[in-house]
Simulated scan of single mutants.
Amino acid sequence: MLTVDFDRLGVRPGDRLLDMGAGGGRHAFEAYRRGADVVAFDQDADEMGRVREWFGAMKEAGEVPEGAEADAKEGDALAMPFADGEFDRVIAAEVLEHIPADIQAIDELVRVLRPGGTLAVSVPRWFPEVVNWKLSEEYHNNPGGHIRIYTEEELRDKVTKAGLVFDGRDYAHGLHSPYWWLKCAVGVRNDDHPLPRAYHKLLVWEIMKNPKALQWVGKVLDPLIGKSLVLYFTKPLAAQGA
């Protein structure tokens, strides 16, 4: 299930795309299917090994256009091993809330994006995230967990101060917020509780089958309680002269 709208980001075949904080690779896989040359980047070496294997399996299965390339690299978001302006599109989905030095990480995202290129950044949305934190200390107080709650204004300000132009916003995963509220209320590790377990089956149905009824519900809930905030930016062409 994607958080970023690839059409809004402007992904085209042949684009060089970076998925920073790629995790399990869901956005990287979609970009590869669309014919982009993809780099999935994350600090988790084991995760990147699995993503690299999936890239190979996708190519063998004929799921990607001829000529598209993909790789997975392990590294530090604060010092990425890429040249200035190397990527046409950059995605940072649900990662900045984990990084203490988020301004430095944003500077790196901007550095590797070419002038005229586009960036999509998603983070947990303020209101659903506040509810989670209020309901459960365990939800966020763990190694590698969420260390801050962004307002839209804060995130937009940090990225525009790094040199990008704000293009617009979106919200995603409205069905997911109530699930996490339930999880936080009964215990985030209490997997046997019947309420979140039943709700999880609904989410699996949404992800696997994407029925029209849940598509409609999602369109209603996303702007109201969507769990993710997605902001889109462009790097000005004038940056090339600088």
Results as ranks from 00 to 15, higher is better:
Ile207Leu: 08
Pro143Ile: 02
Gly145Leu: 14
Ala185Asn: 11
Asp167His: 06
Ala162Asp: 03
Gly174Phe: 00
Tyr179Asp: 00
Lys227Ala: 09
Thr160Cys: 11
Glu138Tyr: 06
Glu129Ala: 14
Glu66Gln: 08
His27Val: 10
Glu69Tyr: 06
Asp191Met: 14
Phe233Asn: 13
Leu195Tyr: 09
Ala92Pro: 14
Arg26Met: 11
Leu164His: 12
Arg189Pro: 08
Arg89Phe: 04
His146Ala: 07
Ile147Pro: 10
Gly21Thr: 02
Ile99Arg: 05
Pro115Leu: 04
Asp167Leu: 15
Ala45Arg: 14
Lys209Gly: 03
Val11His: 03
Ser177Asp: 03
Gly67Leu: 00
Gly56Pro: 00
Gly145Met: 14
Arg111Pro: 03
Trp205Tyr: 13
Leu164Ser: 12
Val11Asp: 04
His146Ser: 10
Arg156Met: 11
Pro211Met: 12
Ile103Leu: 15
Asp46Phe: 11
Ala40Met: 13
Ala101Glu: 15
Arg34Tyr: 12
Glu66Leu: 06
Phe82Gln: 04
Val159Lys: 15
Arg50Ser: 09
Lys59Phe: 01
Met1Trp: 04
Met58Thr: 03
Ile207Asn: 04
Asn142Gln: 09
Ile99Val: 12
Leu78Tyr: 06
Ala45Gly: 12
Glu66Thr: 12
Ala79Thr: 12
Ala93Phe: 03
Arg111Val: 07
Ala79Pro: 10
Lys134Phe: 06
Ala242His: 11
Thr160Tyr: 04
Leu78Met: 09
Val95Tyr: 09
Asn210Met: 14
Glu206Trp: 15
Leu119Pro: 07
Ala105Thr: 12
Leu202Arg: 06
Leu237Asp: 09
Gly168Arg: 01
Pro236Met: 04
Asp15Trp: 14
Met48Ser: 10
Ala68Tyr: 02
